[in-house]
Amino acid sequence: MAKSIAGPEIERLIQLLAKLPGLGPRSARRATLQLVKRREQLLAPLAAAMATAVETVKVCSTCGNIDTRDPCTICADASRDHSVVIVVEDVADLWALERAKALNAAYHVLGGVLSPLEGIGPDELTIRQLVERIAGGGVKELILAVNATVEGQTTAHYIMDQLAGMDVRITRLAHGVPVGGELDYLDEGTLAAAMRSRTAM
């Protein structure tokens, strides 16, 4: 193991940054150096913003989005069509669809996809809450906007099975989303086209 050349506080910062998606140890070291070099412009405001986030960020009890209020801004928006619910795997997918302004509807965040190999079953996701939400009435259409992966499609079929017999139209994203593609990496035009071209399952 390489000997540490920085103090324990700096090493701790590097280790924490390295846990973020897209940042390995080398990128984390570079980011840490920039933060420390620009302490007043970057590090102090970032630390303050993160402290505020710890205190104020909540998970929406209705849809699973993250916001500083519960219900979240989207769920509390009376101008949205709450009879249409878009089911996504993660909050990043919700944000991607919002950036695309694809549809002014409500959402439901699953928190992942079914993956037996990784030990993720229905109880680890918010599928039960989704079924209860549909059973409660008021939802006319459910759009399964999950990624076009094997796990995503397995999850979509499981949800369809759970909703069998309920009075809700179930659709999925259509053309524009490539097989194996992930929503968060697609451009807004592709996402908007896929939403407009959704088809029944």
Rank of each mutant, 00 (worst) to 15 (best):
Y185S: 15
R196W: 00
R39G: 03
D123H: 13
G24I: 02
D93M: 13
A76G: 12
W95D: 10
R172I: 00
S79V: 05
R38F: 11
Y107P: 10
L103N: 01
G64F: 01
Y185N: 14
E89A: 05
L173W: 05
V91K: 05
R172L: 05
E98P: 03
L42N: 03
P178K: 05
N104C: 06
K3M: 06
V113N: 12
E89C: 02
A193W: 07
G121T: 07
S83L: 05
M50I: 09
R29V: 07
T199M: 06
L173Q: 09
Q162W: 11
L110F: 03
P45Y: 03
L114V: 00
L110A: 02
P8A: 08
S115C: 05
W95C: 02
S4C: 04
T68I: 09
R12H: 10
E124F: 06
I66M: 15
V168Y: 03
M201E: 14
G180L: 02
A92E: 11
L16S: 13
G152V: 00
V139I: 14
S115Q: 14
G64I: 09
T73Q: 04
E141F: 05
R39W: 06
D123W: 12
R29W: 08
R12Y: 05
W95K: 09
R169V: 01
V131S: 00
V85W: 09
S197V: 01
R26N: 02
G7T: 02
K3D: 09
L33P: 02
V150G: 06
H108S: 09
G119Q: 04
A51P: 04
Q162A: 12
Q15K: 13
T154K: 00
Q162T: 08
T126N: 15
I143D: 03
R172S: 08
P25T: 13
G112L: 07
G180F: 01
V57Y: 01
G64S: 07
A192S: 12
I10Q: 05
L163P: 05
G189E: 06
G138Q: 13
L42Y: 11
D77I: 03
T73I: 01
T56H: 10
L46M: 08
D90C: 04
E188N: 14
V150Y: 07
L191T: 12
V59F: 02
L17R: 07
A102R: 09
D90S: 15
V150D: 08
K3E: 14
T32M: 04
S4R: 14
A193S: 00
E9D: 09
T62L: 11
G121E: 09
G189K: 10
A156H: 12
T52S: 15
V57D: 08
T190L: 08
I10R: 04
S197R: 15
S197I: 00
A76Q: 15
V109F: 03
L46T: 09
R128H: 13
Q15M: 03
T68Q: 09
H157F: 15
L43I: 00
A76D: 14
V57L: 12
A18N: 04
V139D: 01
V168F: 05
E55H: 07
G24S: 07
A164G: 02
V131L: 00
R196E: 11
E9V: 02
K140W: 10
A6Y: 12
G165S: 07
H175I: 07
L35T: 04
V179P: 15
V146R: 12
Y107E: 10
A2I: 11
P178L: 02
I170K: 13
A6D: 05
V146M: 15
S27F: 10
L94G: 01
V87F: 04
L142H: 08
L17G: 01
